[in-house]
Every structure is written in C-alpha cells, then in structure tokens.
C-alpha cells in the first residue's frame, strides 16, 4: 500500500460511515410516509434540482480534467446528446455516444 494511503484511510472510512448514515436517515424519515406525501414530493423536487444543478455546473463551471475542455465543446457535446435523444425517441446509448463524439470533435477543432 502506498504511504499516502495511510493518511487518507481514516477520512475514507469516516466518510463511508457518514454516507451510510445519510442514506439510513433518509430511509428512516421516509419509512412511514406515502409517495404522495408533501415531504416526499419536496425531497423528490430537491433531488432532481440537485441533479440539474450538477449537470449545469459540470457544463458551465466544471472542475478537474473537464475544465480543460473549452466551453463551446462542452455545450456542443450537451446539445448533440440532447438532440439525438429527442430525434431517436429517447434512446440513451446513441445519445450518449453522439454527445461524447461531438465533445471530442469540437475540442480537437478548437
């Protein structure tokens, strides 16, 4: 095991335990509520909004290696994926492939 792993192991295990606790707390909270309960509907709206925010930030202000891809390439990849998705009646795999291919293509051109 690399030396760096030792210092990073305790935070990893603590975070893993916290993730289980978060998921478990959600299950406990929801345990007695029906799917159409206002709290469940609010939680569903928040979860979807988190996902939408994740996608938006990953396109307009990404971190890490994606940040090295120019914004026009990221936007073109997203637009191509959504366009193929709409044109093919919601087929995911061709849409995903088209989006990534356009991202790489536009990045190579810029």
């Amino acid at each position: 095991m690399p030396e760096a792993d030792g210092a990073a192991t305790a935070p990893l295990l603590l975070t893993a335990a916290a993730m289980l606790a978060l998921r478990g707390a959600g299950m406990l909270l929801a345990g007695t509520l029906r799917p159409d309960h206002p709290f469940i509907r609010w939680a569903a709206a928040v979860s979807q909004a988190v996902l939408a925010a994740f996608v938006t930030l990953a396109v307009i202000a990404p971190a890490g290696a994606v940040a090295a891809v120019p914004l026009p390439a990221r936007l073109a990849g997203l637009a191509a994926g959504l366009g193929v998705h709409a044109a093919t009646g919601g087929r995911m795999l061709p849409s995903l492939g088209a989006g990534l291919a356009v991202l790489l293509g536009v990045r190579a051109l810029l």
Binding site: A52, L78, L82, L100
Partner: peptide, 29 residues
C-alpha cells in the same frame, strides 16, 4: 469524466414530460 453529467442530462430530459419534474429540473438549473 463528461459522460456522467451528459448521461444525467439525458435522464432529466426523459422526465421533462412530467410537470413536477420539469419545474424541479428548470429551477435546479
């Protein structure tokens, strides 16, 4: 790394026909 947000964008697009989902997605974005 971009495959993940793109996949989620496609999933969200698939659910845009439901008004509650559409509102949550637009508001989140």
């Amino acid at each position: 790394l971009f495959a993940n947000p793109l996949y989620f964008a496609l999933l969200l697009a698939a659910g845009m026909g439901v008004p509650a989902s559409r509102q949550a997605v637009l508001a989140g974005a």
